[in-house]
């Protein structure tokens, strides 16, 4: 089968496309092409040899679904795509809305529902966690700078100011909050999330839900090194039943359908785990999962094919990933092809 994957931007703020493809490439059962769908001609995944068989440029989500669908239809005529795996947050709403139309031209998807995507919204995640006894830092959503004045009443500085899709800043006072608010709103629009700051180590889980409440697999990791952008640059698989059970609970209660990442922080004083965020797609470190024995991207492909998929019951503890900066050298011809023709 031919599988298309988005998000080949393996940059210092990486998308998960490259590791998803890498996970699929290791599976002998998958014959057919892997097609990379890219937004920018400089997405590193285009230039990685033996990764995508073919790459195509697609329109940014902000340019409208009709354009996106038309472009995909065109690519589909050439490549006969069987399955698309979108991997970026900002794409998901669009693909969820397009899934029926895509099915109409023979392309499967395996996506969360609209409601599941919305669960990261403040009251929903907050209420959901409260109802299910999961600890979560306090959150407010703000849509104007004035509302930042509410912060001291709510929980006091420092706070974390987050964009609706990406990026976060720690703000120690109103001025810093205001400056972060401006940067984020300019870039990602509204609303902006203001979150109570919890100090401690970061833990993450990559998981896959089957859409009926079952967790197909889940691998927990502690970040060993975090970049100044807050991205995990290395991490190690760990055996921590606490956060795994929270992940199972989230998948069970939401009937999560698709891959996901759960971000936790362990309060350095109380040693309690707080659920910071649910990301509705695989993380950029998802390749650690197959390396530790759970090929979750491949399991997602099987779920999309409506094959029965057994649950993974364990994974190897102590597997480490270390991300690496590596300069790919190529000729300007490839850049030209992707720029001018939109494909390579």
């Amino acid at each position: 089968m031919n599988i298309a994957v988005t998000g080949l931007n393996a940059t210092d703020n990486p998308g998960p496309g490259v590791p998803v493809i890498r996970s699929l490439k290791e599976v002998k059962e998958i014959s057919g092409n892997i097609i990379g769908l890219v937004y920018d001609p400089l997405e590193p995944g285009i230039y990685l040899e033996n990764l995508a068989d073919k790459c195509y440029q697609i329109p940014y989500p902000s340019s409208g679904l009709e354009n996106l669908f038309n472009r995909i239809s065109l690519i589909n005529e050439i490549e006969k795509i069987d399955l698309i795996i979108p991997t970026l947050d900002s794409e998901l709403y669009g693909f969820v809305k397009l899934q029926d139309k895509l099915r109409g031209i023979g392309i499967k998807t395996f996506l969360p529902t609209f409601e599941q995507l919305n669960i990261r919204g403040k009251d929903k995640l907050f209420d959901f966690c409260k109802e299910n006894g999961i600890k979560v830092p306090k959150n407010i959503l703000v849509a104007s700078a004035q509302e930042l004045y509410k912060i001291p009443d709510q929980f006091g500085y420092p706070v974390v100011i987050k964009g609706i899709f990406y990026e976060a800043y720690i703000a120690n006072n109103f001025d810093e909050a205001h400056s972060a608010f401006n940067k984020l709103s300019y870039k990602w629009g509204f609303p902006i999330i203001v979150q109570e700051f919890v100090k401690g180590d970061e833990f993450n889980v990559v998981a896959l839900g089957d859409g009926k409440g079952k967790t197909i697999g889940a691998v927990a990791m502690r970040k060993l090194y975090i970049t100044d952008k807050g991205k995990g640059w290395s991490g190690v698989t760990i055996d921590e039943p606490n956060i795994l059970s929270v992940s199972h609970k989230v998948i069970e209660k939401t009937k999560w359908r698709s891959g996901m990442e759960l971000e936790f922080i362990k309060d350095s004083i109380t040693n309690e785990y707080y659920l910071l965020e649910i990301n509705p797609r695989f993380p950029a470190w998802v390749y650690l999962a197959p390396s530790a024995g759970q090929n979750l991207p491949y399991a997602l492909v099987k779920l999309a094919n409506e094959e029965s998929v057994p649950q993974f019951d364990s994974y190897e503890i102590g597997k480490i990933f270390v991300r690496c900066s590596w300069d790919l050298i190529t000729d300007i011809k490839i850049f030209e092809r992707i720029t001018v023709k939109g494909e390579n």
């Binding site: 300007i332 850049f335 030209e336 092809r337 720029t339 001018v340 023709k341």
Partner: peptide
């Protein structure tokens, strides 16, 4: 031939 223009002195395309 594809209309791709490369300014070799500056690297602009």
């Amino acid at each position: 031939d594809s209309g791709f223009l490369f300014l070799t002195s500056t690297g602009e395309t």
